[in-house]
Nucleic acid binder design. Structure first.
Lengths: 119, 119
DNA sequence: CGGTATCCGTTTGGATACTG
DNA sequence: CAGTATCCAAACGGATACCG
């Protein structure tokens, strides 16, 4: 990349890189939905699966690992119980996503209304 | 789904469905980036490809078709030119995504800063 | 330039069974 | 319950060639 290309891609549209960064971490079909579902409080594995709906255990498991790795979710094992109870809860850092979640949810609502009226 | 389940999934967390709706339409790796890149004004195919970066012609072509179908983008053919010139521009409806794009971009910026400081 | 067609490896993700 | 293992189908997506 030469200096003129940099001018084009960074000066003219500095929003592309941040959006790319964001999608890299919270993009995909499930991550935001898992986070949103935990907004109401901590939940157990099968509970999340039921709440999110349509996600398989295998996929949910890997999503939760990534979310933990990126600091959005904390995995809590209540030891000394049999069978073991595991809970997932949001970290304070996940609060930083409030605006994103709100914007997305309200856009989704608006869009669905629009489609309904068009039909 | 019985009525009690409905209470759980709709009343306790009515945000999941809208988020699902939104991701269905503007989710994926590229759609928001293509829209963001067109914010600065209409562009031609290869221009978009260069600006977005990392997207192949085949994929960009199919993304643009979906975006057109969903009313975010308008395809404009300047006829009577040889070779034909095609431009893509955002529709007024794509303005409804301003908040989403802004929230995502500013979160991305914040997150990148956070990672940089942690290293 | 603005794409489309084809090929093909990679990734995603569902279903099912299984384990501690 | 909280996952993991395996298998397998479908989707994604890059590379390349090609067309008007």
């Amino acid at each position: 990349m030469n200096s003129e290309d940099r001018v084009i891609s960074e000066e003219c549209n500095g929003v592309l890189t941040p959006i790319g960064d964001a999608l890299y971490v919270i993009g995909g079909k499930w991550k935001l939905r898992v986070i949103a579902s935990l907004k109401d409080g901590s939940m157990r594995f099968n509970e999340i699966q039921r709440t999110v709906g349509g996600i398989s255990a295998r996929v949910l498991s890997s999503e939760l690992k990534e979310l933990e790795l990126n600091g959005f979710v904390k995995r809590i094992v209540h030891a000394k119980t049999a069978p073991v109870v595991v809970e997932y809860e949001l970290t304070p850092y996940s609060d930083s996503l409030t605006e994103v979640l709100h914007a997305l949810a309200s856009w989704g609502t608006m869009h669905r209304d629009k489609l309904r009226k068009e039909r």
